[in-house]
Nucleic acid binder design. Structure first.
Lengths: 117, 117
DNA sequence: TTAATATATGAACATCTGTTCATATATTCA
DNA sequence: TGAATATATGAACAGATGTTCATATATTAA
C-alpha cells in the first residue's frame, strides 16, 4: 500500500470492493478455474460434452495413466463440474450442468476469436 | 493404456477425440483458466467489471504489493482478458470483452448455486 | 534538467500441482 | 469362495506459480 494517487477516490473504491463476490465465493471460483486449468481435465470435459464416459474409456483416449484420470476426475467431481453414477462395475461420469458447458464454450470462443498469435 | 473394457468402442472414441478442440486451443484455454485461478486476479476482474482502473487504484484495494498487481495484470493482458490504454502517466486497465464477463459470471453462478458445503 | 509519481520487470523462494508408481477397494463372474 | 476387472487413493517428486524485493523505465511537473 502506498499514498493515494490523484485518481484514487477512497469512498468509491470502498463501494467497488463491497460489490465483488464475498471471499468464500472467490475462493470457490478460484478452485473451479484451477480445476479447468489442466489440459487433461479440459479434454475430459470436452469428451464428456459429447457423451458420458467411464474411466476405462478415458484410458483409451487420453495418454495418461488410469491413476491420473481418477485423480483428475475426483477434482472435477469435488467442484461439482462432473457427476457420477454407478452402473455395475463401471463408474459413469457426466457433465454436471449447463454452467459447465457454457463455461468451457465461452472460453473456447474466446481463444478461437483471436487467430493471431 | 490397458486392454479395452467391454464398454469401449474404439471407433466411437476416435470420433469423440476428433471433435474436441485442437491441441492449440486446448493449450490456450488452459492458460486462460490458469489466469483466472488466482484469487487476486479474480478480484481484479470483479473490480474491473464495475469500472476501469489504474494500477494505483488496485493498490488501495488489494492487499498485495504493486509488483504483484503489475505481474497479475500482465498475465491477464497477455491472454487478452483485460486491455490497456495510456492516459498521461496512468495506465488504465479494462475488461477486454463480453466473453470475459460471461466467463466469470457463469462461474460465480455455479459456485453460488450450491450453498451446501 | 531533476525530482516525483506511476508502472513494469527480473530474480529468488516457498508453496502448490499433476503425474506416476504402488497398492487398496469394489464389483462381477467362474 | 477366488480370480479378474474397474476404479480410487496415498506417497513422492519434478515442474510450475504467486508473491516479494530490488530495480528499471516512463511520464509529468518543477
Amino acid at each position: 500500500m502506498r499514498d493515494e494517487c490523484e485518481r484514487v477516490d477512497s469512498k468509491q473504491l470502498g463501494n467497488l470492493l463491497q460489490n465483488i463476490p464475498d471471499s468464500e465465493s472467490i475462493t470457490r471460483m478460484a478452485a473451479v478455474f484451477q480445476a479447468l486449468q489442466s489440459e487433461t481435465r479440459l479434454k475430459m470435459l470436452f469428451l464428456l460434452r459429447q457423451k458420458e464416459m467411464c474411466v476405462c474409456e478415458f484410458e483409451q483416449v487420453l495418454s495418461v495413466t488410469q491413476s491420473a484420470i481418477s485423480h483428475g476426475l475426483r477434482i472435477l467431481r469435488q467442484l461439482d463440474l462432473v457427476r457420477v453414477r454407478r452402473e455395475g462395475k463401471f463408474t459413469i461420469y457426466y457433465i454436471a450442468d449447463e454452467h459447465v458447458r457454457t463455461l468451457i464454450e465461452m472460453c473456447l470462443e474466446h481463444v478461437e476469436e483471436k487467430h493471431e498469435l
